[in-house]
Amino acid sequence: MIPDLKKITDRITQNEIWRSIFRHGYEDTARNRVLQIISNIWLHIHPSTVKKDSVRLSYTFCLGGLTFFIFLFETLTGILLMFYYTPDVNRAYADMLDLSNNAVPFGKLLRNTHRWAGHAMVITVCFHMLRVFLTGSYKVPRQFNWVVGVVLLVLTLLLSFTGYLLPWDQLGYWAITVGTNMAGATPILGYQGPFADLFGFTIDNDIRFGLLGGTSIQAPALLRAYVWHCIALPSLAGALMMLHFWRIRKDGFSGRL
């Protein structure tokens, strides 16, 4: 007996559970095409009308979307890495080596892709901003979204920077030494910066101290980098990304009509 395919699909799709998740079928009608767009979360990120010119790949090069994709990838691999990494000065480097030496299944792949994707995200953010600048998309009425984007750039750089210390190796240690000493040379706020004496900033109460949780790079600095890297900064960046995408929907795409 040949099974009736129509009957089977109807049985699967014509019920409350299926219909509560999927609101439309695949018929090629004008109404259905609209439904497919507006009921899809990814397509829904686009404004209700998109200019023909902005749909061209060479207009956006999908750079913002790529950045968001990399952020999601970093979140996924980051969560998996957190299962095997301990932010403790005696454990961190060994845990990182374990991951790199495949003491954990897929450990090397996870750690290396997490690191490379981190570099890639900085690059795509920069190219995204270059594209936005060259197409003049930061102008009226999108200035606010540009400002949100600049904050997201800073958060991306901070995510890179805080992730640098976590392997607790020579490279990360000295990178954070140099980076936080630059913070220590900030005017007024840093103990080595100009006017610091005037405001009473010393090595144990300036902005560098606030970042490191001490006067030198010790256990508190590693823990702080870990918490900023894994929880605080991704949450902030995620919240701002929502705002960023929502503004794209509201303000529409730039470019010719």
Partner: peptide, 8 residues
Amino acid sequence: FFPRVLYE
């Protein structure tokens, strides 16, 4: 963000 006791 500024601890009162340091273990340094």
